[in-house]
């Protein structure tokens, strides 16, 4: 009998700690499928963020490094510059990449570091219990915007792909969404393109993945997927920015 579907070698046989309906598990698996398909597991080094995905190294079957909150791209710079022959990527949430680590993000991109970035945008701080993220939508209620995000004083959702598109050293930027089976396939395709960019030495590539967080959004999983498609994607249009 021919085996047509199995766990990627890059993914450990472990139950994740993620909440029901969370996008992290899907994103983790897609990364592992791409790493297997490209045959780069043995030279892969991931930098995990502070946030829900901090223990991604418990699920990934390759070398992993922790970083302080927001510093993943600085740590990745140190790894890649000393080991240019390895495949180095960061996996970061919106608080990590777009709030506390904004400087590291902009400057790693501006230096054109030959790195790949999986940026999980779920419009909320998940691990700490659903506070306002830099990417929280206007009017969205969170633990720290109980009346809904008001641009007066709380600002507007930060659009990372649009922001980084102005930098000449950036190789590619794409925004995708885990909102449907089709979205999952497109996400995998975008990750693969970004990873290949690094293997070809093209420089900084980032994939922004709009991802559901049903628990912090206080929505059932199905509705959360719909909210990604119908609400998040209005503020964060999908597509290639570079």
């Amino acid at each position: 009998m021919k085996k047509v579907f199995s766990r990627p070698e890059s993914l450990r046989d472990a139950a994740t700690h993620y909440c029901p309906g969370c996008g992290h598990g899907i994103a983790h698996r897609l990364i592992c499928e791409v790493i297997d398909e490209l045959g780069i597991r043995e030279k892969a080094i991931a930098v995990c963020p502070v946030g829900c995905a901090v223990v991604a190294y418990d699920y990934w079957n390759f070398d992993c490094c922790e970083a302080a909150h927001g510093r993943a791209l600085a740590v990745a710079t140190g790894i890649k510059r000393t080991q240019p022959d390895k495949f180095v990527f960061t996996y970061q949430g919106d608080g990590d990449l777009a709030a506390i680590g904004t400087a590291e993000t902009i400057h790693a991109a501006n230096r054109g570091e030959n790195l790949s970035v999986a940026f999980i945008n779920n419009a909320v701080y998940g691990m700490t219990g659903g506070q306002m993220a830099p990417t929280t939508l206007l009017g969205q209620k969170t633990a720290t915007t109980p009346r809904g995000r008001n641009p007066a004083g709380e600002g507007y959702p930060l659009k990372i792909c649009e922001l980084l598109a102005t930098l000449p050293a950036v190789a590619s930027l794409e925004r995708v969404a885990l909102d449907s089976p089709g979205g999952v396939i497109k996400t995998k395709r975008a990750l693969k393109a970004a990873f290949i960019n690094q293997l070809e030495g093209k420089g900084f590539s980032l994939v922004e993945i709009l991802s559901p967080c049903p628990v912090c959004w206080n929505k059932p999983a199905g509705e959360a997927w719909r909210w990604v498609r119908e609400e998040m994607a209005k503020t964060f249009p999908l597509g290639k920015f570079k």
């Binding site: 970083a67 740590v75 140190g78 080991q83």
Partner: peptide, 14 residues
């Protein structure tokens, strides 16, 4: 400086 020491962390981890 935050980035510099984290870059050092990456190089050291290597």
């Amino acid at each position: 400086e935050l980035a510099a020491i984290s870059m050092v962390m990456g190089a050291s981890a290597s």
